[in-house]
Design a protein around this nucleic acid. Structure first.
Lengths: 240, 240
DNA sequence: TAGTGGTCTAGACCACTCA
DNA sequence: GAGTGGTCTAGACCACTAG
């Protein structure tokens, strides 16, 4: 008679740690307790705690630093600053990426947006429009839809903040940390509006990147539609 | 005085196992020795062997099966049959994917192909052209360049073999196993030839997917240029 | 020097597969 | 029941960081 709900100790510990992250027990960038202390707290051996943390580090939830401790992952960190941006310049030159938001308004969720964000049609969503410039040239036009309840007070002024990535801002100012995302890519013809923004002829082929981003518990909190101009850049993907 | 070449035991074991895979000590699908036997052979504890194997399993080099053993990963396996094909149908319906190769000829490497495959310009490469059909409809047009030395005897007849994926054929018939790959995506306008093959108007936006595939030792052995029709399908990518 | 993560051991026992 | 991978322990020692 096999136990249908068997769960190894290290997984229970992992689940507990994840729940602690969800409720904000430790914030992004904070150190979590040492392996030894966690082992004592849970009355298990250090190896069991290690296995739980190993998995969470592999999932980019935690970051280990030898000699210092284990820390909650954060987007405000060069290591994962543009972790989700796969666009690369043709010439390997290091490009200066700048986000240029120009619109931020409250809207009613369309059926499409409501569906992916798990909302009702008509629920309030924030829509942010922005250009991403590489070395000054506009390369990406993003329309970003956010669950309005979670981002109360977001405004154009806040968005223009500075050098930080959007996700860095979200986690520090709104306590919403993006954990993972799924992108759907297609090739489309540029509509007049987007063509104008990106400085390409109407009808030019553009890379359409639709992204759903999830926070803890696989809860979708952002959906964005990006149009990438791939004349001098490409979307890079490593297949494991 | 820190040791500049310090390498933990488990990594040395991992390197040894990888080298064994490279030289064909065990072929795709074969079982490797049990953890206990490897531990004895290397005079280490089982835990050390486990850590080496853990990493290799995470890299899709090995597959663990509880109660049975550890096996060399193979493309001839539903789990990783189309591991590298990210195209998904709009409606979640399960699609029947068929490869329809129609050309296979020896060519001289162009500068571009020579560069990515690490060859000299003019070296012999095999060029395979094929259509990928989803439920009968042509969706992908691939031009596949292979290092000719490694695929001696490859012909259209062999390619038309059957239900297996290309990579499955490559590993079983030529001993070349694809380990990982890197793809570069762009949106382009359909040229007349490709448009005809895919049944779309000339100039239609198509998703250009350029892939370099690597075998053991990060050696590039295949480069392909695929044109994906993304009217009813999309390229799906999970961001960790 | 104290504290942290990283490696390694020897052995126990559990869960799964198959003959 | 024999053999395999999966979990867990208690403890040792190493490597790294920082005050």
């Amino acid at each position: 008679m096999p136990s249908p709900t068997f769960s190894p100790l290290y997984r229970q510990i992992k689940d507990f740690l994840i729940r602690s992250l969800e409720v904000g027990e430790w914030g992004p960038g904070d150190a979590i307790p040492s392996e030894g202390e966690l082992a004592t707290r849970f009355s298990v051996s250090q190896g069991t705690v290690r296995k739980a943390i190993d998995e969470m580090a592999a999932e980019n939830l935690l970051v280990r630093r030898q000699g210092k401790g284990t820390f909650v992952a954060t987007h405000d960190d060069p290591r994962s600053f543009y972790r989700f941006l796969r666009l690369v310049s043709d010439d390997g030159t290091v490009t200066h990426t700048v986000s240029d938001p120009f619109s931020c308004e409250l809207q009613s969720a369309t059926p499409e947006v409501a569906s992916v964000l798990g909302l009702q049609v008509g629920d309030r969503v924030l829509c942010v429009e922005r250009l991403l410039r590489f070395n000054g040239e506009p390369v990406v036009f993003d329309q970003i839809y956010l669950v309005a309840d979670l981002f109360a007070g977001l405004s154009l002024e806040k968005l223009r903040g500075g050098e930080r990535s959007l996700y860095s801002l979200f986690e520090s100012d709104f306590g919403v940390r993006m954990i993972n995302a799924e992108e759907h890519l297609r090739a489309v013809a540029a509509d007049p509006y987007s063509a104008g923004l990106l400085g390409v002829p109407e009808g030019s082929p553009l890379l359409l990147v639709e992204r759903t981003a999830y926070t803890y518990g696989n809860k979708p909190v952002e959906w964005r539609r990006g149009l990438y101009c791939t004349r001098q850049h490409y979307y890079r993907n490593d297949l494991g």
